[in-house]
Design a protein around this nucleic acid. Structure first.
Length: 596
RNA sequence: GCUCACGUGGCCUAGCGGUGAGGGCACCGCAUUGUCAAUGCGGAGAUCGCGGGUUCGAAUCCCGCCGUGAGCGCCA
């Protein structure tokens, strides 16, 4: 329909007759001369209508009318250039105008300068996407896919699709369920990830698999969480941890090089889980700033202060924090309570080196004496303490660390800090977590997932001390976000059974849930491992967006609601009947059959 | 499930115990020959999220509900 794209026109096109299509971005009507900013996917160009019939017809144009125009490219009169836009040197003098489609008045302005609420924008996402910001985010996401595919194809990977109507996968989240009409009472689960399928593909000899895979988890919302989300899912045979990590680095460095103009220094540094927790109070530390936790359990071993008579005492220093007004220090208490802590003890280091704050008087003289040095605090700093179980206290301090960095402006927003977190524990005690979704019923559950291999050091001994067993697992972290994670998998049925046993999964249960996988392992399953990248989150980081919603074409809002289609929706009684959602199982039924 | 914040014409927003609920954008009409977030004049458009309460009087204070967002729990 068109000869050129609006945003592509430059001074060198002057004199050419062009046909353009696009939308009315803005109209500036001066009576005898009317300017239209015509927008298509490539950008915007100014179209001029002068007196007579053209001006009369242009007068009736409104925002977002869809047009086809024929005109000549002309250099703008001297002094009228617009340096703000790429096409600002030229304008189109129109000889023909066709309105392809009119537009109803807009529900919200598609103005680059005015910000409309998210709810209304998502309800009319097709309009929101005409704006340059949202459009750019989706185009960038397409590039993210392209670059990853290029890297993976260069490494001989095979792109394979796996089912979305399947059986529950053991990722630990709640499943989305789909009733099976042909088998009333039986349900499909949407995959939380293609985990088991990709392992089966390794058994199937595909050796190098990847997929940009949609995953589904029925959990509550966050700004960085959606009920359906995308992973770049990768699995490789005959590899160890270093091979997967090297491949993962190739993908990520290609993305950041092309899309963020950032050369990631390879190899990406590694930090052990234990180190990350001890120093940053997080398994996804933000390494863009220096502040670290200091453990003071030893220091307070003989403390008279009862709160610090705990299995773990640690602190984090807020530079310059001693000058915070009382109100701000109280706000920190509120902040800590929000996180389920009792409070956040603090000590202020005054300029003369003495200690202030409510708990200082509870400490012994000796403790007060050496505290600033032990905590690494300088005069004028504020020291926050947490005491209790190591995990809880460190998590609180880790969160405080991030909060301090924000409040003190310690974060360089242009920085990219990558790291691998490695040497995860294989198991996690179930009394530390709500075990309603844990696989199995034992005292231990998998920290990563149930198919993660113990490291070679732990593989023979993990039953004796499950808490000490290390997993062959790794997470990639960027600026405090976990952007990917993976592991070397168990490929032997006997090891898999032993792991299930530690997790309290009986032979019968594991056979019933994962029998197909255990069966597959009987037939010479190769050693394999892989990684999955949180694709939405990576796109969000690359786009410098605040929310996952910005990099998803049609995102859900809170509560899993789609503002555009109003899904989820009620179903008709007929659908209800056919779907068999009200099927009541017979009271007594012998076990067996494929259905569960 | 918990905590906090917000909900005022289509959009953005002011008002925080007595107002004719004010403004900007959009919309309709008129004017307008160099703008680029054009401009000027005129017009229409609001049960102030819903329900209850306090008060002589509520958009404004209180309670409940709904919706949205952020955080926690949960979730890699």
């Amino acid at each position: 329909m068109r000869t050129h794209e609006a945003g592509s026109l430059r001074a060198e096109h002057a004199g050419q007759t062009v046909t353009l299509t696009g939308w009315v971005a803005r109209r500036r009507d001066h009576g005898g001369v009317i300017f239209i900013d015509l927008r298509d996917a490539s950008g915007v160009v100014q179209v001029v209508f002068r007196e007579g019939e053209m001006a009369d017809r242009a007068h009736r144009l409104r925002s977002e009318f869809c047009l086809k125009i024929v005109g000549t490219v002309e250099i703008r009169p001297e002094g009228n250039e617009n340096a703000e836009i790429p096409t600002g040197a030229v304008e189109i003098t129109t000889s023909d105008l066709e309105v392809l489609n009119e537009s109803a008045p807009l529900p919200f302005p598609l103005d680059e300068h005015v910000e409309a609420g998210e709810e209304i924008r998502l309800r009319h996402r097709y309009l929101d996407l005409r704006r340059s910001g949202p459009a750019r985010a989706l185009r960038m996401r397409s590039e993210v896919n392209r670059i990853a595919r290029t890297v993976l194809h260069a490494n001989d990977f095979v792109e394979i699709e796996t089912p979305t109507l399947t059986r529950s996968t053991p990722e630990g989240a709640r499943d989305f369920l789909v009733p099976a009409r042909l088998q009333p009472g039986s349900w499909y689960a949407l995959p939380q990830s293609p985990q088991l399928f990709k392992q089966l593909l390794m058994v199937g000899g595909m050796e190098r698999y990847y997929q940009i895979a949609r995953c589904y988890r029925d959990e509550d919302f966050r700004a960085d969480r959606q009920p359906e989300f995308t992973q770049l899912d990768i699995e490789m045979s005959f590899v160890d941890q270093d091979d997967v990590i090297a491949l993962g680095e190739q993908v990520i460095s290609a993305l950041w090089k092309e899309l963020a103009d950032h050369e990631i220094a390879l190899p990406i540094p590694r930090i052990s889980y234990a180190d990350a927790m001890a120093r940053y109070g997080s398994d996804k530390p933000d390494l863009r700033f220096e502040v670290e936790l200091t453990e003071l359990t030893e220091y307070f071993a003989e403390t008279p202060f009862r709160v610090f008579q705990a299995p773990y005492v640690g602190c984090v220093v807020m530079p310059g924090g001693a000058s915070q007004p009382r109100k701000k220090l109280d706000a920190w208490q509120e902040w800590a309570k929000q996180r389920g802590a009792k409070g956040l003890a603090y000590v202020l280091v005054t300029e003369d080196g003495t200690l202030g704050g409510p708990i200082a008087k509870n400490l012994s003289d000796a403790e007060r004496e050496g505290l600033a040095k032990a905590a690494g605090a300088n005069p004028g700093d504020c020291v926050f303490f947490a005491a209790g179980q190591p995990n809880d206290a460190r998590a609180l301090l880790g969160a405080a660390r991030v909060e301090i960095a924000h409040r003190c402006g310690l974060i360089d927003e242009d920085a990219w800090a990558f790291a691998w977190v490695v040497d995860f524990p294989l198991f996690e005690a179930t009394d530390q977590i709500g075990d309603d979704v844990a696989v199995g019923s034992g005292k231990w559950t998998a920290l990563h997932h149930a198919f993660t291999s113990p490291t070679p050091d732990s593989i023979d001994t993990f039953e004796q001390d499950p808490g000490a067993a290390k997993a062959y697992a790794y997470d990639m972290v960027c600026n405090g976000n976990e952007i990917g994670g993976g592991s070397i998998r168990i490929h032997r049925a006997d090891v898999q059974k032993r792991v299930f046993e530690v997790m309290g999964l009986t032979e019968e249960e594991s056979q019933e849930k994962f029998g197909f996988l255990l069966d597959a392992f009987k037939y010479g399953a190769p050693p394999h491992g892989g990684i999955a990248y949180g694709w939405d989150r990576i796109c969000m980081l690359l786009a410098k967006a605040d929310s996952l919603r910005d990099v998803i074409a049609f995102p859900k809002s809170g509560g899993g609601f789609d503002p555009l289609t109003s899904a989820p929706a009620q179903i008709t009684p007929q659908q209800r009947k056919e779907a068999g959602v009200d099927f009541k199982p017979k009271p007594v039924e012998p076990k067996g059959e494929a259905a569960s």
